[in-house]
Each structure stands twice: as C-alpha cells, then as structure tokens.
Write a protein that binds this DNA or RNA. Structure first.
Lengths: 143, 143
DNA sequence: CTTTTTATTGCAAACGATTTGCAATTGCAT
DNA sequence: ATGCAATTGCAAATCGTTTGCAATAAAAAG
C-alpha cells in the first residue's frame, strides 16, 4: 500500500552538481531522508540525526532542508499544527490525507479533482500556480 | 457565482448569550467585522480598529478573534504566508482561490469535489473531519 | 600532504505571529 | 452609587524558524 519503489535519489550527486560541499552533517541528514518514508518535521529529523551524530545542530537541519527545498529535492508542507513537514520530491504530484489522531500522512491523487480545480479557476479568470488539498480525517471504526 | 447576500449576523446578541461583556473594544472590532467583506488578518483588523479607537491593543484583537472563533462566529484560515486571516462564518461552506499577486480571496464551492474527497477518504478507510482546499493562482491575462 | 581559500557549522540571539501573566480598569448586576 | 468579576493594555513569553558571527572543516591549490 505504500512501498514506493522510488529510485532513491542521489542527493549527494545533486548537491555536488549544485556546487555545495558534502559535509558530515549533510551526509547524516541526507541518509535520514532517503531512509524515511514518513513526513518528518525538522525536530524529528534533528533527533534522528542527533542519534547518529550528537554534534549536529537544529540550525543545520533547517539550513539543509531549505537548501534541498530550493534544489527541488524535497517538498515542505504546512499541515495543521505548528511545524512544517518534509518529504522527498521524487514521485509525481499528490495530495494528502492526514490522520488527526496519529499525524500519519497518506498520499493520494485524483486526476478528476485536479481537472475540476482547473475548471473552477478558469471560470473565475485565473490560472492555478499551485494548490493545496488536505483531508483531515479519522480512521473509520466499523467497516 | 459568489455574491453572498449574507444576512449580517448580530454578534452582540450572540456574545451576550454566550455570557460575555460587550466592551468598547469588542464593539469596535465587531463593527469592523460586519462591515468587511474581505479576509483581513489580525494586524489589519487592529489597524482599522486603531483608526476608530487608538487605545485598542493588538492583544485584544487576538483575544476577540479567538473568542468569536470558539463561538463559531468566524473562521480562521491559515493561507500561505504568515498571518492567519478571518472571515465571518455566516454563509455555507466554501473553499478559496487566493490571488498570489494581490492576496485577494475568491470563494468557491464544488459539490463534485467534495463528493470525490469523500470517496477517496472512504476508500482509504477514513472519515473526513475537515478539509482544506486552496487554489493559488494568478489572474489570466488574455481572454 | 601541507597550505590556502571559502563554505559550512554551532551557538546564541533575532525573528514574526500569537499567547499570556498581571495589575489596572471597566462592564454591569445590585 | 457600589462591588466584584470580566476584560483590558502592556510587556514578557512562546513556538517554529532564521540569522550573525567567529570557529571549523571541505575541497582546491601547491
């Protein structure tokens, strides 16, 4: 249901091409990102990184996330509730269903909804630059 | 398509019923809200209020917005870009198209999209508690 | 492999939006 | 009018995130 056969992106190569240095902290953070398939926030990444190398600072996590975001390697999501959450930018576009009890994120995509969005914007005289569709829900109890 | 003939809500009556005092600052803020048909943020409300009564504080604006939100009289939206924006909660549910150049907000509603959202959540085993659909766009140039 | 250059780091302080503690004020019921 | 709890303004605190700066460490040069 969620094992994405995503050809794990070679962040290091991308970074090198972007002309930035492959430092120890960055290596650790990149490793965490490639090994992760949830949507961690900066603090979670920081904690996972600290477990590997306690000298890594939260600032560096933020700086690295910003860097990767600008390179287009990751996406930043401002779901409800404080912290921004990140995900690898490998796959195609999708929207999110957030479990309001656990914070779990499920990705989904609806071509039909996207079409309808386009129609609506168009009817209002607009071109969509980007959009945000988030469903906040609770796991159904009885089937 | 979107001209809401909103029967302007009597906030004062609602507040009184909720057992809170009708103070001078609150009167001013309520007046601003009823006279407004855009989606102002706290700072804008504060500035408009200051023009009427310079002694009103930003804290009071925030406190009043929170109060009204808890009463269900207004909705708070966390669109992109810092500040939360508010709108009267009179009409029926709608989503938003935000003009990324001007910040203008256009309300729209699509029964079809809502149905599709339900289908998706349902297929994933979830009940939707609430959702967020925001289109960020730019006014189309050539018709 | 040492030196040089310059990006990157950790830290603490700054940030912007919002909330809060507190003492002074004010609605409003008596 | 009187009394008291609700409300205010202010300043300080909060939370997530960003930033200035001096110290450090990649990678380039020799």
């Amino acid at each position: 249901m969620n094992q994405h056969a995503s050809h794990k992106p070679d962040y290091e190569k991308e970074l090198r091409r972007a002309g930035v240095r492959i430092t120890r902290p960055r290596k650790v953070i990149l490793r965490i990102l490639t090994e992760t398939d949830d949507h961690p926030d900066a603090m979670e990444i920081f904690q996972r990184a600290s477990a590997i190398d306690p000298s890594i600072s939260l600032s560096t996590v933020y700086r690295t996330m910003k860097l990767l975001e600008e390179m287009g390697a990751i996406h930043r999501h401002a779901f409800e509730g404080g912290r921004a959450r990140f995900e690898q930018a490998d796959g195609e576009h999708h929207d999110h269903l957030i479990d309001i009890d656990t914070g779990d994120v499920i990705e989904f995509h609806s071509k039909r909804i996207e079409e309808l969005q386009e129609e609506i914007a168009s009817a209002l005289g607009y071109d969509i630059v980007h959009h945000r569709l988030e469903l906040y829900g609770r796991k159904r109890k009885r089937s």
